[in-house]
Amino acid sequence: MAWEETRPGQWQRPIGENEALIKCIGDAGKILGKDVWSISATATFVAQVEPKSLSRALRDGWKLLRFRHPSIATVADDGVLEYRVPSLVGLEQWADEIFVYVETGINLDDVIANLKPTRFATLYYLQESSSLVLYLSHWRTDGVGAFHLLNAFFNAVIESLKEETPWSTVG
């Protein structure tokens, strides 16, 4: 189904039948604080970049990914999927909410065991182990799609290390 701009910067489309079914099943666990049909994809990497610039590049890469793969910032409500193009301030607020920086003391298993439903796809960066956990509801993508998102994310990180993005000086 095609997306339609309903107001400047606000895009909507009806939720597809498959997405609706998967969302219905996943939402059944919300009463227990779980998304019972979610996807977690992990990656561990080696980077030869200063830790401070690496964490900034990871965050900037995540923000860039939002524009290349808007599904990570799309919300589903009442049979409609909606995406809003953010302002620079809105982009920072979104990143503050769903780019989770974990300095020490937590491993990948701990993060995955404690995942809670979120409005958007969420990325956890575990600095101590140079690891990531991408967490998203299954209605957004499938398991293979999650790995494609991780790959696209790493490409966005590399790009953000090479050049200054419009938001790299914000926040």
Rank of each mutant, 00 (worst) to 15 (best):
2 A>H: 12
3 W>C: 00
3 W>Y: 07
7 R>Q: 15
7 R>L: 15
8 P>R: 11
8 P>N: 10
9 G>Q: 06
11 W>F: 15
12 Q>E: 15
14 P>A: 14
15 I>W: 01
18 N>G: 06
21 L>S: 10
21 L>H: 09
22 I>R: 03
23 K>L: 12
24 C>E: 11
24 C>M: 13
24 C>G: 10
27 D>H: 03
30 K>L: 12
30 K>G: 07
30 K>Q: 13
36 V>W: 11
37 W>L: 15
37 W>H: 08
37 W>C: 10
38 S>A: 15
38 S>R: 04
40 S>L: 02
41 A>W: 04
41 A>Q: 10
42 T>R: 10
44 T>E: 15
47 A>F: 08
49 V>F: 06
51 P>M: 07
52 K>R: 11
53 S>K: 13
55 S>G: 00
56 R>V: 07
56 R>G: 05
57 A>M: 10
58 L>P: 01
58 L>D: 01
59 R>K: 15
60 D>N: 13
61 G>L: 03
61 G>I: 11
63 K>L: 15
65 L>K: 00
65 L>C: 05
65 L>W: 03
66 R>T: 13
66 R>H: 10
67 F>W: 10
69 H>A: 11
69 H>F: 11
69 H>E: 13
70 P>L: 11
74 T>P: 02
75 V>K: 06
77 D>L: 14
77 D>G: 07
78 D>G: 12
79 G>H: 07
79 G>E: 09
81 L>Y: 01
82 E>I: 11
82 E>G: 05
83 Y>A: 00
83 Y>F: 15
83 Y>P: 04
83 Y>C: 04
85 V>G: 00
87 S>W: 01
92 E>M: 13
92 E>R: 14
93 Q>Y: 07
94 W>A: 02
94 W>G: 01
96 D>T: 07
97 E>I: 01
99 F>P: 02
101 Y>T: 06
101 Y>Q: 10
101 Y>K: 12
102 V>H: 09
102 V>Q: 03
104 T>I: 01
105 G>M: 06
106 I>Q: 13
107 N>S: 09
108 L>K: 12
109 D>H: 04
110 D>W: 05
113 A>F: 00
115 L>H: 09
115 L>A: 05
116 K>C: 05
117 P>H: 03
118 T>W: 01
120 F>I: 09
121 A>Y: 09
122 T>Q: 14
124 Y>E: 05
125 Y>W: 14
126 L>A: 09
127 Q>Y: 04
127 Q>E: 14
128 E>N: 06
128 E>T: 08
129 S>H: 10
130 S>D: 08
131 S>F: 00
131 S>Q: 05
131 S>W: 01
132 L>H: 07
133 V>C: 06
135 Y>E: 04
136 L>Y: 05
136 L>V: 06
137 S>D: 14
139 W>F: 11
140 R>D: 00
142 D>L: 00
143 G>L: 06
145 G>M: 08
146 A>F: 06
147 F>H: 14
148 H>Y: 12
148 H>F: 14
149 L>Q: 06
152 A>E: 12
154 F>D: 04
156 A>E: 10
156 A>Y: 01
157 V>Q: 09
158 I>Y: 04
159 E>F: 11
161 L>K: 03
161 L>E: 02
162 K>P: 00
163 E>I: 03
164 E>A: 10
166 P>E: 10
167 W>K: 09
167 W>M: 10
168 S>R: 09
169 T>A: 14
171 G>N: 08
171 G>F: 09
